[in-house]
Simulated assay, not measured.
Amino acid sequence: MTQVVLFLDFDGVLHPDGEAALDENFRLLPNPNLFCWKGLLHEILEPHPEVQIIVSSDWRRFFDDENLVRLLGPLGSRFAGVVETLGSPRSQEILGEAARRSIERWVALDDHVSVHEAAKEDCRFIACDPRLGVSKPETQKALCKGLLAFWCRQPSFASRESEPEGCQVKAFIQRGDM
């Protein structure tokens, strides 16, 4: 089966943006809200064992590969490295990394402003609401649709309007969020 890559941000995707994460010495804080949606992403990806994760998050600057794998928990076995390009807008870093590695089948989950802009033209970019990340049902649908497009041999999945067949949306609402 052909490899598919998920370029993955952490803040605003696996937990709400703005969660306290690191202390003044760049050590991880014991915040139970960090990575609160990684189990949800694990469930969504479970039927797709060929999906590998490349971390595009700024966390790649503070943690080595071994610690990123640990932080990803059940997703850690999918870890395929980090985006090595630094300094460009996030969307350009992702495009550069895909080109550098000759990755043709990929999607990116990110809340960065450049990804929101890129998503208007390229549906491989899935822009997340920084407060809801992958817990938002529309984001889950977009991810499922993007992944299913590779197996259905669809050349494009530009339309975000239709419901992808076979997509299990794992609606996840934290108490007190609404």
Rank of each mutant, 00 (worst) to 15 (best):
F26N: 12
R90D: 08
W59D: 05
A80V: 00
E66P: 06
D65P: 02
P32M: 10
F35D: 04
F35T: 11
L29H: 10
Q52L: 06
T85Q: 04
I94P: 00
N31T: 11
Q92E: 09
E84Q: 12
N31F: 04
I53Q: 02
C36V: 13
F26V: 15
V83S: 06
N31I: 08
T85P: 02
A80I: 00
L41C: 09
E46K: 15
Q92H: 03
L40C: 09
F63E: 12
N67R: 15
L40E: 08
N25H: 09
G39E: 08
L22M: 06
I44V: 15
E46D: 14
G73F: 00
L86T: 07
Q92Y: 00
P49V: 12
D58V: 13
E46Q: 15
P32A: 08
I54V: 13
F62Q: 13
P74A: 09
V51Q: 10
L86K: 02
H42C: 07
L41S: 06
F63L: 14
G76A: 07
R61P: 02
R90C: 09
F79G: 07
V82E: 01
I44E: 03
E50K: 07
N31W: 05
L22W: 04
V82W: 01
V69K: 07
S56Y: 00
F62P: 04
C36T: 10
R27M: 14
G73A: 10
E24D: 15
G81P: 00
R60L: 06
L40P: 02
G39P: 05
S91E: 03
G73Y: 01
R70L: 14
P49S: 12
Q92G: 00
H42D: 08
I53A: 06
E46A: 15
E43S: 14
L34T: 12
L86I: 06
D64P: 08
G76Q: 09
N33Y: 07
P74Y: 10
P32F: 04
L75R: 03
F63Y: 11
D23L: 13
R90L: 04
E46L: 13
I54M: 07
L71H: 02
L22Q: 03
H48W: 04
S91V: 03
D58S: 14
E66M: 12
L45F: 02
N67V: 15
E50Q: 13
S57Q: 12
F26E: 15
L45S: 05
W37P: 00
I44R: 01
N67L: 14
W59L: 11
G87I: 02
C36M: 07
G87W: 03
T85E: 03
I44M: 13
R78S: 01
F26Y: 13
